[in-house]
């Protein structure tokens, strides 16, 4: 009981994990973020290979265009910044699962101990 609060606090701190935790937009590796990576792009109808970044007009209005299958289209970060698509956070899901089960067990045992002690 003496160290119980400390154990719970440590578990909660590891649950937050601060910078290493999963907020996909913050912790995604560069290859996951699709907007600025190098890719083939067709503006004119003819195949060209160039490295470029888009300005905002290229993803809307009359300049809107679609990439080949397998390449990411513009304005789709929201789609790929979801847990199912971001494999790099799956290990963190496992970590959280283990910590939560540990916390549940500690809280359960502690409340049982307190109940008996008070009676």
């Amino acid at each position: 009981m003496k160290y119980l609060k400390l154990i719970i606090l440590l578990a909660l701190i590891s649950l937050t994990g601060c910078r290493i935790d999963y907020d996909i937009e913050e912790v995604a590796p560069p290859e996951h973020l699709g907007e600025t990576h190098e890719h083939e792009h067709d503006h004119t109808g003819a195949e060209t290979e160039e490295h470029h970044e888009h300005d905002i007009t290229a993803i809307s209005g009359s300049d809107r265009h679609v990439h080949e299958a397998g390449a990411r289209n513009h304005g789709t970060e929201w789609f790929f910044n979801q847990p199912w698509a971001a494999r790099f956070i799956w290990s963190k899901m496992i970590r959280d699962t283990v910590i939560l089960i540990f916390l549940a067990a500690v809280i359960l045992l502690a409340s049982r101990y307190r109940l008996r002690k008070k009676r």
Partner: peptide
């Protein structure tokens, strides 16, 4: 993950 969080909330 969901079941673990559920167990945590129930505890």
């Amino acid at each position: 993950y969901g079941l673990a969080y559920m167990a945590f909330m129930l505890s």
